[in-house]
């Protein structure tokens, strides 16, 4: 139910704060997504999308930090 999936923002249409929309690509499938809750989003950003709404811009630097932490745990094991 709280499923939310990451997709790439391909284009932005409109500038009304309630109805601003974007085309978002999910592994080949493109959907229209409401951007009201991510006013900072730029084309090329990855967005987390739930029930037709982008609810977050995914922070690439933080993703890399998490992966580096995981990498450390994995290396300990070797």
């Amino acid at each position: 139910m709280c499923l939310a999936v990451p997709g790439e923002l391909l284009s932005i249409e409109g500038d009304d704060p309630l109805t601003r929309e974007g085309r978002v690509g999910f592994a080949g499938v493109v959907k229209r997504v409401n951007l009201a809750y991510v006013p900072e989003a730029l084309v090329g950003d990855y967005l987390l999308v739930h029930a037709g709404f982008a609810i977050a811009v995914i922070d690439e630097a933080e993703a890399l930090r998490t992966l580096a932490y995981l990498e450390e745990l994995v290396e300990e094991d070797e």
């Binding site: 139910m1 709280c2 009201a36 739930h50 709404f53 609810i55």
Partner: peptide, 16 residues
């Protein structure tokens, strides 16, 4: 229905 994740979507439908 839904948790805090979904409530913003419902709220926006009401505002529109």
């Amino acid at each position: 229905i839904g948790f805090e994740t979904t409530a913003p979507a419902t709220a926006m439908a009401v505002l529109q």
